[in-house]
Amino acid sequence: MAKRQYSFLPGCSSRPGASASHYLTSVETVCGELDIELQTIPDWNCCGASLGHVGGGELPRIALSARNLALSEQAHPGQDLVTACPGCWLATREASERLRQDEDLMRDTQEALAAGGLRVRAEQRVRRLVDVLVEDVGYEEIGRHVRRPLQGLKVAGYVGCQSSRPVGVAGDSTENPTHLDRLVEALGGEPVPSYEKKVQCCGGALALSEPARSEGLLRGILEAARDHEVDLVVTPCPLCQLHLEVYQQRLARSGGTRPAMPVVCATSLMAVAFGRSAREAGLDGQLIPAPALEALPPGLA
């Protein structure tokens, strides 16, 4: 039995062939390395994300997350529910909190769930994967697994929204979080604690619907990283990672001349530092390759 076990919500984008499938590869590699067993919630569904309120209103949207909570507690009693995607975390955590605080909402939700033969208690903790890595595993233990330190690499830690708000990772600041910097440090890299755009929104879902308006946000995130002359940007959020890559591809097409800034998932960076292959780190899924990572000297045995 693994040292730590969690009830796991992978989320729609992490499925094979979806936009964050490379991220899930790196998550699996890192969790395997750290003896963390992620037990996937059987028959999980979409969390409703940040747009579910429009079509789903209040009760149907909360019922979506309540179904995941119910399936999780049924299959994995006593375990924390852990999400790969910070967006899934926010929707699931909010639903769980509302259910515990609001008796009327709980009653209505039970009535809705009964149509699928389910009941929910919503008593388990709902956490992000990064919460688990930082709080339960910790920097020290992570550091012990490093076989290929990120020596000489300067890395901007882009935390984004849903890994800092409404609650920071392991109680970290919502305005100037440092957990990602400390993680980079534990992996042997050089963090940029004063990186100005670490909690700037990337546009979220609106990067798709309002691309022109989101571009200013994406540009700022990348320009601030360039100002610090970093080798790459790291983020715990697969959606931010996707948006920052796609935006730069669009720029290149419209005649942009600046070299693209590699943006990698936090777990990809960990897998590399753990001495795992580029494929195991999910780096073969990069739209913008990260040559600095590939150029690192081979790891210690």
């Binding site: 747009l51 579910g52 619907s209």
Partner: peptide, 23 residues
């Protein structure tokens, strides 16, 4: 006309159809 309204409505249809978003 807000593009986000259209996105959100297509998103919800997509979720309701199979229970998971098909990107």
């Amino acid at each position: 006309d807000p593009p986000t309204r259209r996105l959100a409505e297509r998103f919800w249809e997509n979720v309701v159809r199979t229970g998971r978003v098909n990107e």
